[in-house]
């Protein structure tokens, strides 16, 4: 294969990968973030205790988290078709990605918010903050460095899921590496697509840890 063609192929793959990863991450955060907040604030000694609700929510999230992405991809097929208009293709894979990622994100967010010192929350409570003010002005901003770090980790996880998108007819670098590279014995394609994926993961991780340090004022 000529260099130009290879580059063209990888470029398309890269765009497809990002086309799946970025919207899936954003939308999964829209669902996972509020759930993560709920997991924290409804704990027994937190701002809005609701232990029974907390237990049920935690169990549901654990259940969803325990289904491997590749299985979810197949299981969700009819739902994906109903929601996305088609069960297969790069665009359609975004839906199972979201379903698979949001429980994971909820747990990550929960972990970050749990790191916020309870004394700080109590101080804000003592000043007469409403629950919404506590969440928006105290809990989330105080946890922001950790949340950003978690977001980078979640994005990398979603990126790694996209590599399996070929099972539902999706594209991206993973599909190129498996279908065009591995199955068709074109090792140059396999390696270059894989290396590009690795670089992408490195880039996201680096950006994550850099911003985490940059925005943290604790030292």
């Amino acid at each position: 294969m000529r260099m130009e063609q290879l580059m063209q192929l990888l470029w398309t793959g890269l765009l497809e990968t990002l086309y799946m990863t970025i919207p899936a991450t954003l939308i999964a955060y829209l669902i996972g973030m509020p759930l993560g907040v709920l997991l924290v604030v409804t704990r027994k000694n937190h701002m809005m205790p609701a232990p029974r609700f907390n237990t049920v929510l935690g169990a549901v999230i654990n259940f969803l988290r325990s289904i491997p992405f590749i299985i979810l991809l197949v299981l969700l097929f009819p739902v994906t078709r109903a929601v996305m208009g088609s069960g297969i293709g790069t665009r359609s894979v975004i839906f199972p990605l979201i379903i698979s990622a949001f429980p994971y994100i909820a747990r990550m967010v929960e972990g970050s918010l749990n790191e916020v010192d309870r004394g700080i929350i109590e101080a804000a409570q003592s000043m007469g903050s409403t629950s919404w003010q506590l969440i928006r002005k105290v809990l989330i901003p105080e946890a922001m460095p950790s949340l950003v770090n978690g977001a980078a980790i979640c994005m990398v996880t979603i990126l790694s899921y996209t590599a399996m998108s070929s099972a539902a007819g999706g594209g991206g670098l993973g599909t190129i590496a498996i279908v065009k590279g591995l199955n068709m014995r074109q090792s140059d394609i396999m390696y270059s697509a894989s290396i590009l994926l690795v670089l992408l993961v490195q880039l996201i991780s680096l950006a994550g840890s850099y911003s985490t340090k940059r925005i943290d004022h604790r030292n």
Binding site: D117, G119, I120, S126, M127, G128, P141, E142, D216
Partner: peptide, 29 residues
């Protein structure tokens, strides 16, 4: 609660806010 200020042994300041923003918090809310 807004008529009662409270201070603590461990200060409990918002660590991601500046001094000015900390003092401003009760006014903001």
């Amino acid at each position: 609660r807004r008529k009662m200020g409270m201070i603590f042994q461990q200060f409990n300041l918002l660590m991601q806010r500046t001094v000015g923003q900390n003092v401003r918090y009760p006014l903001e809310i």
